[in-house]
Nucleic acid binder design. Structure first.
Lengths: 260, 260
DNA sequence: GGGTGAGTTGCGTCCACGGCAACGCATTCT
DNA sequence: AGAATGCGTTGCCGTGGACGCAACTCACCC
């Protein structure tokens, strides 16, 4: 359970601020907590906990339910978080991680988002290999024939899927063209947390993609590694995919995803 | 006079926590700020500001750009804010419906509630994920100049209206500044079940909003669609408004409205 | 009515916090 | 190049502010 994990203190900073923030984290975990319980969790006296909570309340970071009731997180946090997202953008946050991923795998890394009924490529980091693919940035690519597209689709519910999917033209011999088949694949993507596409968009082009999520858990973008099929075979994929999902998760964390 | 204007302090709480939170607010306002500037704004010594900032950094509430660079708000806030909205059931229930509405209309969707004498924005879903408009979440916005505000006002009776409405400053040339005019508009809002605001808060910004009701029929929140005026013209509105009112009604149903 | 357990508050002690000054490191000026 | 400025960062005390104690006020339940 949550309690045995002390880990609270010793941050080497200002003690009271440390404690105050720990209180916020406790409230985030438990929802509604009383002063006494907070004090217990911090290992401080009731009165200390009370004063810290009061200070937080004065700034709107926590609110009290009722007159002498428990405490919970307040809307002041929304204001601060709003200011955070103002400067946060996916490309910005993802870039350093993408570069690392590109270096690790040696292949090209892309970031894409859903735009209407296609995938819009926002960023690209070229791999180290001599053979460079063309630059996808700014292009709209079919959703059903790419790993990025499948990941983005996997974040939609059934109704939205129908709005977005119109036709499934065959771009190569291996393109998925049947809706039922695609739906099955999307279920697998949701299950395993990544998607792949081998020779489905272009002959000889293989890619794998994993979801980037925001604080609410919505899939807001997709991160992919792609390269020529002859380089990205079965066994190469077994090392690339974990690196990819790890990187996507890291970006998601930077965007606030991380409720357990 | 010599020292800072501020006035944000002396909350009668724990001093260092007060200061730490003030730092967060400063960062929220200015975006990126250095230690020295923070110290100046708080009226404390550089080292004090530094230690406070460091403590915040250890918890992920602020981050440093570069190795010895300035500081900005961190992603830890997003996680806390996520936990905040998780307990607000309006946001929780509205979210999937908002997402659908945002997809249908292609414009930004907001959820707002009445907070004191302004509208507090609780959630926002961007229309097209590529380019993010201004993020209103957590902000307090004038009631008389927004569609959300008009909807929230339309749920009040005459007495409460007077308590809440103080002044009606003109924010653009089209802002409603006369009480009599506003009252007439509110009657129309009650009548037709939605409100609009064209260039009333900001030049070039158009919005429409509809009420979210609880089981008792009270207006507890407001749902809005907003975008640039050139995209949300007369004819676009004729399709958007029904989608909007439909969505708001659906959220209301989820909250128990309409089960006799 | 008395008992329990919540949140709240005054008070005195003591230590954590804040101010000082020096340092490392960039960048700019001459 | 060297000097000079100005930033973020750190060790060192002294003291003011935070903390623990204990008493208080409410609610709720035997």
């Amino acid at each position: 359970m949550s309690n045995s994990d002390v880990a609270a203190d010793q941050s080497g900073g200002v003690q009271s601020v440390d404690r105050a923030i720990t209180i916020l984290e406790v409230l985030a975990r438990h929802g509604e907590v009383g002063v006494t319980e907070v004090a217990l969790e911090l290992g401080v006296h009731k009165s200390t906990a009370f004063r810290l909570v009061s200070t937080l309340e004065n700034h709107g970071l926590v609110e009290q339910s009722g007159d002498r009731g428990k405490y919970r997180l307040g809307v002041g946090l929304l204001r601060l978080a709003g200011a955070t997202t103002a400067r946060l953008d996916v490309v910005q946050e993802a870039r350093p991680i993408c570069k690392r991923l590109a270096a690790e795998t040696g292949e090209t890394v892309n970031v894409a988002v859903l735009s209407g009924s296609s995938a819009l490529y926002l960023d690209q980091i070229a791999g180290s290999s001599a053979l460079q693919p063309h630059n996808w940035v700014g292009q709209h690519i079919p959703l059903h024939a790419t790993s990025n597209g499948k990941v983005l689709l996997s974040g939609l519910d059934e109704d939205d899927l129908d709005d977005v999917l119109h036709e499934l033209p065959a771009l190569t011999g291996l393109t998925v063209t049947k809706r039922s088949r695609l739906r099955k694949e999307l279920a697998v993507v949701r299950e395993q947390g990544y998607a792949t596409a081998v020779d489905e968009l272009e002959e000889g082009l293989t890619a794998a993609a994993a979801p980037i999520r925001n604080a609410h858990g919505d899939v807001i973008a997709s991160l992919s590694v792609s390269g020529p099929t002859f380089r990205l075979g079965e066994e190469k994929m077994t090392t690339v995919v974990p690196q990819l999902t790890e990187a996507a998760l890291e970006v998601s964390h930077r965007l606030g995803w991380g409720h357990r």
